[in-house]
Simulated scan of single mutants.
Amino acid sequence: MTDHNPLYADACETCPTYDVFPESALRDGIDGLIAGYRCPNCGHIWTCGWQIVPGRSIPPEPITDSSDFNEHVTARVHEQAAMARAIKHLSKGDPA
Results as ranks from 00 to 15, higher is better:
A84W: 02
I58N: 06
G55D: 06
D28I: 00
C48G: 07
E79N: 11
V73K: 03
D68H: 11
A11G: 08
G55E: 06
P16W: 10
D65L: 04
L90T: 06
K92P: 01
R85W: 00
I52N: 12
K92D: 03
W50Q: 09
S67I: 01
A96F: 06
P22S: 08
D65E: 10
P60R: 09
L7I: 14
I58C: 03
G93Q: 06
I58K: 09
G29S: 08
I45C: 05
R56A: 05
D94G: 02
Q51T: 13
N5Y: 11
D65C: 09
G43F: 06
P59C: 06
D10W: 10
E13G: 05
T2V: 10
L90S: 12
Q80G: 01
E71H: 10
F69A: 07
D65W: 01
P16C: 13
F69I: 02
T74D: 07
A9C: 09
A11R: 12
D68N: 08
D10Q: 10
A81N: 01
L90M: 15
S91C: 05
W50F: 15
S67Y: 04
W46T: 06
S57M: 13
W46A: 07
D10C: 12
G93P: 00
G49Q: 07
I45Q: 11
H4S: 13
L33W: 05
D94I: 10
Y8D: 01
T17V: 12
K88H: 11
E13R: 14
R27F: 08
D68C: 10
D3N: 05
I63Y: 02
D68G: 04
Y37D: 03
A84H: 06
A75N: 12
E71N: 06
V20M: 14
A96Y: 13
L33K: 05
D19I: 13
L26S: 02
H72W: 08
D19W: 14
E79Y: 08
I63V: 11
I63W: 02
A81M: 03
Q51S: 14
C42E: 11
P62I: 01
S67P: 03
M1N: 08
M1R: 12
W50M: 05
